[in-house]
Design a protein around this nucleic acid. Structure first.
Length: 210
DNA sequence: TGCCAGGCCCTCTTTAGGGCCTT
């Protein structure tokens, strides 16, 4: 059975290309609609956390002084998620840090780790929601409270629960095509790229090729 | 002086602009 890794980074800024670094990572493994593993660690990279980010995340410069080196954390989490397809909320953001921090840590590229994005999927599958922020969708779906928002494991757990709900939506909406087969990451990745008017065709195509 | 992310989506679009989403 497929295991999907859901990750979330807390960082010092919006993009590695401007020098931002990760300060914390949370990773959750999802298999068969259940959470089967979780990982969280602060990570020290030597960069200063701006006051705005300290206030947003609650992660302070003092907290990071005793944290393990970023390179060590990335090697651990790379081993934890090895071979798993990935999911994140606004995956373009987390994927950027995932690739940058992995490269810094000297991790080998993992070609199996395609990303699916719960923002893109929610926009296609859940058009009634007022917006597609993680906190809004958690309330909208009545997801479990996983602790302080803007901490990596709490947000990764919320994203994992959101992923399961979105998989359920796909399974219910396309029950005829799926015929009881699980909603795999490959189908999610195809759906998130499909035009809204062609979701039915996308599912039929994915099922025909699987 | 004014700008400083990037990828995606929508529309009063496509030779563009603005909003969303993440820290």
């Amino acid at each position: 059975m497929e295991t999907i890794a859901v990750i979330d980074f807390e960082t010092t800024g919006m993009t590695p290309s401007q020098g931002a670094r990760a300060t914390e990572i949370g990773a959750v493994l999802v298999r068969g609609g259940e959470i089967v593993g979780q990982y969280q660690s602060l990570m020290y990279s030597g960069v200063h956390i701006p006051p705005f980010i300290e206030q947003l995340t609650g992660i302070s410069n003092a907290m990071l002084r005793d944290a393990p080196p970023a390179e060590q954390v990335m090697r651990e989490v790379a081993a934890f998620t090895r071979g798993c397809p990935m999911v994140a909320h606004n995956a373009a953001f987390d994927r950027g840090f995932w690739l940058a921090e992995r490269e810094r840590a000297g991790c080998e590229p993992d070609l199996a780790q395609e990303f699916a994005c719960t923002v893109l999927l929610s926009r296609r599958l859940n058009t009634e929601a007022p917006n597609h922020k993680l906190g809004t969708l958690a309330s909208w779906f009545g997801l479990p409270n996983n602790g302080r928002a803007h901490r990596a494991l709490a947000d990764a757990l919320t994203t994992a629960h959101l992923l399961v709900r979105l998989q359920d939506l796909v399974a219910q909406r396309y029950a005829d095509q799926l015929q009881g087969r699980p909603v795999r990451h490959e189908l999610l990745a195809a759906l998130q790229r499909a035009p809204k008017t062609q979701l039915d065709r996308c599912v039929a195509r994915a099922q025909a090729s699987s």
